[in-house]
């Protein structure tokens, strides 16, 4: 900051032109080439400490047999990574199964969490009596912690003493579905609970996006004779494009990081089929203190997410000429 002040003082308030001329266009009016970096420095420090350093240290850890309670941490090269894809190793089959579990969950929860909240947001955006209550009701579950919703749903979903099967039986449907101890019922349960729990968040983001679309566009569309569906397709959806991309990416990441629901509701049952990647990473690293393998797993998962996010961005990129 002091260099900035000094520059301003030395050039004076009135005559800035000589500075510009001397240093060319790249130098801002208010200082030297380091000024932007000085402004970035506070965030850079945080970024380096909490993002860069952990990545580098994590990479280092993943190349060792690393149990932090044991002083000997022998170098293992790519051994941890190899183990993950070796069906004969202790962790290999479990890791692949956990990645599959995360994949299944992401595959089915993301479309629902993208579409259902959009529908809810469209409803919330309409003008009707009791709208605020309606908005609050949909957002309410999101306020609860995962431990709360999990305990709640475990009692509802229990196949022997739970409410859900009782009600299903009362209306003549099968009442013996094992919602927490068999697949695919457990996936229906986990995805259903997650949609119920988090749809409010996505809906609020959509709602903000909807309110940003100028009303004139709708008016113009109406004058052009567009019906409701055409308004939605040609005004609402294009208007929501940036919001939609944001929602898709954060929903994918949130779904891929699913942990609490399966940890608390199904305990990974049956036979680890609903144990997600994050669940398994936490178990490996924090319960078994096997930080080396846990770090390796995290990198593989991160890599998958990077690729997936890249694909989403590619899909949402502005197509030249096509849409304009």
């Amino acid at each position: 900051m002091s260099t900035v002040d000094a520059e301003i003082l030395s050039t004076g308030a009135g005559d800035l032109r000589p500075v510009e001329r001397k240093a060319g266009r790249r130098v801002s009016r208010y200082g030297g080439r380091w000024v932007p970096y000085v402004f970035l420095l506070p965030y850079l420090a945080l970024f380096a400490t909490f993002v860069l350093a952990p990545i580098v240290i994590g990479l280092w850890v993943s190349l060792h047999v690393w149990d932090f309670t044991i002083p000997r941490k022998p170098w293992n090269g790519l051994g941890n990574y190899k183990d993950l894809f070796d069906s004969q190793s202790v962790v290999g089959p479990d890791f692949i199964r956990s990645m599959k579990a995360t994949g299944i969950f992401t595959l089915f929860s993301v479309p629902l969490l993208v579409v259902v909240p959009l529908a809810v947001a469209l409803l919330m955006n309409a003008k009707f009596k009791g709208r605020n209550l309606f908005r609050a009701v949909y957002f309410a579950p999101y306020v609860l912690g995962v431990a709360v919703i999990a305990v709640l749903w475990r009692y509802i979903l229990d196949n022997n003493i739970g409410l859900l099967n009782r009600y299903l039986g009362a209306i003549g449907l099968p009442d013996d579905i094992a919602w927490t101890t068999s697949t695919p019922a457990a996936w229906f349960a986990l995805i259903g609970v997650t949609v119920w729990w988090t749809l409010g968040f996505n809906a609020v983001i959509y709602l903000a996006g909807l309110q940003d679309i100028p009303a004139e566009l709708y008016e113009a569309a109406k004058i052009d004779g567009a019906g409701r569906w055409q308004q939605f397709r040609n005004v609402t959806l294009p208007g929501l494009r940036p919001v939609l991309m944001f929602v898709v990416i954060i929903t994918i990441i949130a779904s891929a990081n699913m942990f609490g629901q399966s940890y608390l509701i199904t305990q990974g049952q049956p036979g680890n089929e609903t144990r997600t990647a994050i669940y398994y990473i936490a178990e490996t690293g924090l319960k078994n203190f096997d930080m080396g393998r846990a770090a390796a797993m995290s990198f593989i998962l991160t890599l998958c997410l990077l690729v997936l996010s890249g694909l989403v961005m590619l899909a949402f990129r502005e197509r030249k000429g096509a849409s304009r």
């Binding site: 909490f50 952990p54 240290i57 994590g58 850890v61 932090f68 912690g145 995962v146 431990a147 999990a150 305990v151 942990f259 609490g260 940890y263 608390l264 305990q267 936490a282 690293g285 924090l286 930080m291 846990a294 770090a295």
Partner: peptide, 19 residues
């Protein structure tokens, strides 16, 4: 209440990696 430990634990993860 099996939960939350992990959340706490994950925070410890970074610290632990510091070694």
């Amino acid at each position: 209440f099996l939960g939350l430990s992990a959340a706490v634990g994950l925070a410890g993860f970074a610290a632990a990696c510091g070694g």
